[in-house]
Design a protein around this nucleic acid. Structure first.
Length: 271
DNA sequence: CCCGGAACCTGAAGGC
DNA sequence: TGCCTTCAGGTTCCGG
């Protein structure tokens, strides 16, 4: 599932190959992946546009098209593939964007949750997002201030995109393990010491995963069709029943807000 | 404002 | 073997 490190990897690997290219054609194979405008307008307005640059905001990829913005969210199972070597990966293509150098950008998404928007102002899509966890503005003090008055489980808070942008299910579990905090602890109950551990833990798990080109759990592929290796570094995420790498206790799996949540009951006690 | 649960999807996995 | 059910999860929407 693409979270911040996966989208960052896609951005890093895709942009050098598409910036400066002009869009010559667009096909939509599943209309509901187009969030705005209508699929027909989306396609006709894209044709002729040049890809001038791009950036990431949370889990969104934003392509700049000289005054307009193509915004992409991969949700659970989406990939952006640029002429992948394996023809197998062209299955589940929901949209194709043809470029003036003969390359094709495939939007692959088996579960059809992904979305594409073509807008004049990116804020119309991303305005609700909280701070970027790897930007200087995300400080321990900001984290502490935002946790006040939050009674939901810390796991649910960390995956709330309005709280922090880009952290999803896997990296929330990894950060809480690194900070030795039980996922069900109410946000406002965290002590100053715990917040001091949690802040760098969030940044470190994200940076480490970016260095490993993302985690290939389920359907994550890089633009060339390769996978990432970050999941081999996971200490608790998706490791239910395996021994904790710190103390050997069996990793537990519980459900928090209907999301699979992995933690070590000994390293992350509820108290 | 904040919290929790349903809905959107479909392939994979498990039960019988 | 095969049908049926359940699960997975990012985000939005809705009710409390």
């Amino acid at each position: 599932m693409p979270e911040l490190p996966e989208v960052e990897t896609i951005k890093n690997e895709l942009l050098p190959r598409i910036v400066g290219r002009r869009i010559t054609g667009v096909e939509i194979f599943w209309y509901r992946i187009v969030g705005y405008p209508s699929p027909a307008d989306f396609a006709s307005r894209l044709i002729g546009k040049e890809i001038a640059g791009g950036r990431r905001r949370g889990k969104y990829l934003i392509l700049e098209l000289n005054g307009e913005f193509l915004i992409i969210h991969l949700k659970m199972s989406g990939s952006l593939l640029l002429d992948p070597a394996s023809p197998e990966l062209k299955r589940y293509t929901r949209a194709a964007i043809y470029l003036d150098n003969g390359a094709t950008l495939y939007f692959r998404d088996p579960r059809k949750f992904g979305r594409l928007w073509l807008v004049d102002n990116p804020d119309s899509v991303t305005a609700r997002l909280g701070p970027e966890p790897l930007e200087p503005g995300f400080t321990p003090e900001l984290l502490a201030a935002r946790l006040k008055n939050r009674t939901a489980p810390i796991k649910a808070i960390l995956t709330d995109q309005a709280f922090i942008a880009g952290v999803g299910n896997m990296y929330a579990d990894e950060a809480l393990f690194a900070a030795r905090i039980h996922p069900l602890r109410p946000g406002s109950s965290l002590t100053p010491e715990e917040i001091k551990r949690l802040h760098p833990a969030i940044q470190e798990v994200l940076k480490s995963a970016i260095a490993d080109k993302g985690a290939s759990i389920e359907n994550y592929y890089r633009p060339d069709g390769n996978t990432g290796v970050a999941h081999f570094q996971f200490r608790v995420a998706h490791r239910g029943g395996q021994p904790c790498p710190v103390c050997g206790t069996s990793i537990e799996r519980i459900s928090v807000r209907n999301r699979g949540t992995y933690f070590c009951p000994r390293c992350q006690p509820l108290k």
